[in-house]
Amino acid sequence: MNTEKLSAHPMAIRGVIPQGSRAPHRPATAPPSAAPRRAHELRLMWRNTRMVVLSVLTAALYAAVLVPFKVVPLIPGVTELRPGNAIPVVCSFLFGPAAAWGSAIGNMIGDFFGGVGPGDVFGFFANLAYGYIPYKVWTIVAAPDQSPVALTPGTLARYVLAALAASMLCADLVGWGDNLLALRPFWVLGNIIIMNNMVAAIVLAPLLLAAIYPRVRRAHLLFTDLMPEIEASARPRRLVGFAMLLGGEVTAWLAGNLVSAGYWRPALVPAAFNVAPYTRAVALTVSPAIVIAIIGMLLL
């Protein structure tokens, strides 16, 4: 709690706060310790107890709903749709950074109950991105204070862009990671993940948001309400980040697909790597694009 904020407090203006008893506007959940002034919101959120709890609940919900809610086979035997895949997107709009960590942890727990799937470290960061990017991109492409509920065709397109930006980096990260470990070809995993996430985000998430968003706002549990101290970076910086994110992830996705399927043999890659099944070629080509996308994400 800083003092200059208190003086601007509405209750202070109304003169309700007597001397000696200052009611902070926001719950004094943050330890008063001196922390760096402008920490990234992914770090800042851990100081607020309610945000910690929201990340826990996102994680527990994600893990709990992923498993028992019956899967809908999309391509029988290859991939299946789970309603749980909508949770990171929905929570992203509600709980912001808490949803990002929650999705990452929730995915890990889901793996724990089912036996850790290989490449879990990548799954952790992929789901972090999947929960983090939607609300960040949304606040760039949509009007300020535009709620993600009651979408018009115009805002729907922006919503889809936000969801796609998130799904694609998520897919890139898992595809890249599993390729790095030479577990699964990029073209298999990368595309399945994008498709699964997008179907859940477009078909299911808007319905859930419409039902839940207004209620969360009324309960003052939107992250913007809980942590007004989170300030967005300057717009130009965010736009650069957005451009890097989109450029990086699309490049990574295209390169990953083309190289792993053998349609493109980049000249820069040592010839020894440029033989089927191209796992090392994929890793080499995709890595720079992924790094750019991640830097872009953190600049959002």
């Binding site: 826990v56 609940l57 527990a60 709990a64 942890i105 929730g106 724990f112 109950f113």
Partner: peptide, 8 residues
């Protein structure tokens, strides 16, 4: 979160 999963 681990503790809460069975509950949820």
């Amino acid at each position: 979160a681990f503790r809460l999963v069975p509950l949820f």
